[in-house]
Design a protein around this nucleic acid. Structure first.
Lengths: 261, 261
DNA sequence: AGTTTTAGTGAACGGCGTAAAGCTTACGGT
DNA sequence: ACCGTAAGCTTTACGCCGTTCACTAAAACT
């Protein structure tokens, strides 16, 4: 006795009434998509609440009022689900970083960069478990998932595009190419090749500065998320802001305090 | 039919011959200590081979020819075992860092620092799973173990002592205290208080530089261990060496290439 | 000698991922 | 309008896991 019995047009076989108002995606696929979302949402709830080890198929199924093997219609296993969540999280993180720059004027490059880097930190702190799922050291044997790799690339690109603008403005005091050793140049070539940069528009010096910025930001935020220093120095925000200043000055970005603490 | 049957002196009850040569610590405690080591060694073997999730009491017990509940005589549970391993690993890492500086002359501060930081990276790369166990983001709810905290402090101290020497030599071009904001000064005060530094011998500027160095080194090594960049830029050593140079120059350390690649 | 402490086993409980088989229901083709 | 078929889901089952409890055998102490 489902509630659908009170539908205006129909009784008897609703198979007839169903496909009449069919939208493009088809009803079947819509409910499937909804279930898929529900599974991932529940996975995230547990992830946020209990960390990565708290995510289990059985628990998720229980929360949804079904049994674990049913989830195999949607994911090929726990790893597959986790990878799907990872990909979603990368997209979300990218959006958070890009979104923070959105409200600022397009020509305020410095402001956009500052806002984006702060947004990265904020997202990480507001989603510790998610952050650690994204950036944790993978187990020795498990191969990376292509969806996650792609989403990671997109995330990286959302950072690089900020940098591109900076380069275009030509304000970065770049180290001369000759100061960079030949082995490192090789590696930066490889990096540029796989990320779409060309050495034409981004010199070795520029890539060098970019890497340096990213490493420092990543180290800082990772430490804060993992709370390695928190027990001995408390609130890390002052250190973050001070480092932000130091990180960005070699890239020619003028530091500004955040007006909304 | 064991090989021991061919032993020269013995047959009958060997219980009589045993306790004669008892040493100070007591025989009982020795074998207990040995078993304890064996458990931790087996835990490490699995850790290195399969990463943190591969460490299980049942598997370890199986490897040792006993059953899982028996291990509860030595550890109060899996977490307890993992924490013991963590503490051991911190000691080992500290020793590796300190040991790398050992062979160098005591007055070669720059050389000792370079060797120590390179040793940190080398250890991390040679023990990826162990490194990630030490520095992974903890699950939201689990409280830190005091033994691990203490060992972590010791590890930090092994780094700080290098820095102390640098300070004593007065070669660091320190930022003036006034350049450091009041909030950050508060945090650095807290940091100094809990680590044994005093603001007398280490100015705010010095602590600021120390933190900056550590954050950059940590970020760099973490990224390399997690292999975030490896797929797109291959061997990270050139970047590490270049960063090492940049990291240490604000601390007044003169970079030297490593003679043994 | 007997008593107590220790190391270890065996069985059991509940939770986990996952494979196989079966049942219901809705869809698609005719 | 009907029927084959596939999708969604459950039941059952296997083997792994951490952990508890009751128990035995041996060592240590008195």
């Amino acid at each position: 006795m489902p509630a659908e019995a009170s539908a205006p047009t129909g009784d008897g076989t609703q198979a007839q009434a169903g496909p009449g108002a069919a939208a493009a995606p088809g009803r079947r696929e819509r409910v499937r998509e909804a279930t898929l979302r529900e599974i991932k949402d529940n996975a995230r709830r547990r992830l946020a609440a209990e960390g990565p080890p708290g995510v289990s198929l059985r628990a998720i199924a229980r929360d949804m009022g079904m049994t674990a093997p049913g989830l195999y219609r949607y994911f090929s296993g726990l790893d597959d689900l986790l990878n799907a969540v990872r990909a979603d999280l990368f997209h979300e993180l990218s959006a958070a970083v890009a979104g923070a720059a959105g409200p600022l004027p397009a020509d305020d490059t410095d402001g956009r960069i500052l806002a984006s880097l702060r947004a990265f930190r904020s997202w990480a702190l507001a989603h510790r478990a998610e952050f650690s799922l994204l950036f944790a050291t993978p187990a020795p044997q498990d191969a990376p998932d292509p969806r996650v790799l792609e989403a990671g690339r997109e995330f990286a690109a959302s950072f690089f595009s900020l940098f591109d603008r900076l380069l275009a403005e030509g304000r970065i005091p770049l180290p001369a190419d000759e100061e960079i050793g030949p082995e490192l140049r090789d590696r930066l070539d490889a990096f540029a090749a796989k990320t779409g940069f060309t050495i034409d528009n981004a010199s070795y010096g520029a890539l060098r500065v970019l890497m340096s910025c990213w490493v420092r930001l990543y180290g800082l935020v990772s430490m804060e998320v993992a709370e390695h220093m928190t027990p001995i120095m408390g609130d890390m925000e002052p250190l973050f802001e001070a480092e932000l200043q130091d990180i960005l000055s070699p890239a020619g970005v003028e530091y500004r305090a955040s007006h909304r603490p």
